[in-house]
Simulated scan of single mutants.
Amino acid sequence: MTEANPSEEQASDAADQKPRAPRHSVFLSATVEHFGGKKPTRHRVRDLSTGGVRIDQAAGFREGATVLVSVGALDAVGATVVWTRDSLAGLKFVEPIDPEAARAKAAVAPQPFRGQSRDLSVNAPTAGWVPNLNSPYRR
């Protein structure tokens, strides 16, 4: 009887699995709508890829449940709860998404206060870290 090499077994297991899409660590907020009359819930998105998302504050999620996820400019994308652990959950999108659309903000301009002009650049700060406060690329 011959013994199988453990590294060969691991290699064959890895070959059987489909490669995962690259994960991007993000700091986004998502709304998850549940079926069956439950109210929509808000969650922090920890990881994002074209095929799915990892969220926190996911107590009460159950594996196999179908939900609708809204994040950034993406509205009501169908997803299935694949795993839950502690207060985290992994959701797999029904169809691949564009991660850039998930990072985009809704294009709704705030209404100006009464008597305030639309052009807010007049009084905008020009020194220090304040001008970059809303930049998604700031550190």
Rank of each mutant, 00 (worst) to 15 (best):
S117Y: 05
V130R: 12
E3R: 13
R42D: 05
E33N: 09
S70W: 04
P19I: 11
P40K: 02
E100H: 07
A104C: 05
V69I: 12
L48A: 04
E63P: 03
T66I: 14
L120P: 01
W83V: 07
S121R: 15
S25Y: 01
A127K: 15
T80P: 02
G51I: 01
G115F: 04
V32A: 02
F93Y: 08
S29M: 10
E9V: 12
R103C: 13
E8K: 09
A14E: 14
T84P: 02
D75S: 13
T2I: 11
G90A: 09
G36C: 06
S25L: 13
R114D: 14
D13H: 11
G90T: 06
G60A: 11
E8L: 13
W83D: 07
A30Y: 00
D98Q: 09
K18F: 04
A101T: 14
P22E: 10
G72D: 04
V130K: 15
N132D: 14
A109G: 05
K18Q: 14
L48Q: 01
S87D: 14
V45Y: 00
L91T: 12
R114H: 11
A124P: 06
S87A: 13
H34S: 10
E9S: 08
R103N: 06
A59C: 04
P112Q: 04
V53Q: 02
G90V: 09
Q10A: 05
I97A: 01
P112L: 13
A58L: 06
A104T: 09
N132H: 08
R114V: 11
P110T: 09
W129R: 15
G78N: 13
D75H: 15
A4M: 12
K92C: 06
G72R: 01
T50S: 08
A124C: 04
F61P: 01
S121E: 11
R44C: 02
G37E: 03
A107F: 09
G60R: 03
V94R: 14
P136M: 04
D75F: 03
A4I: 05
D16K: 07
E95I: 10
K18W: 02
L68N: 10
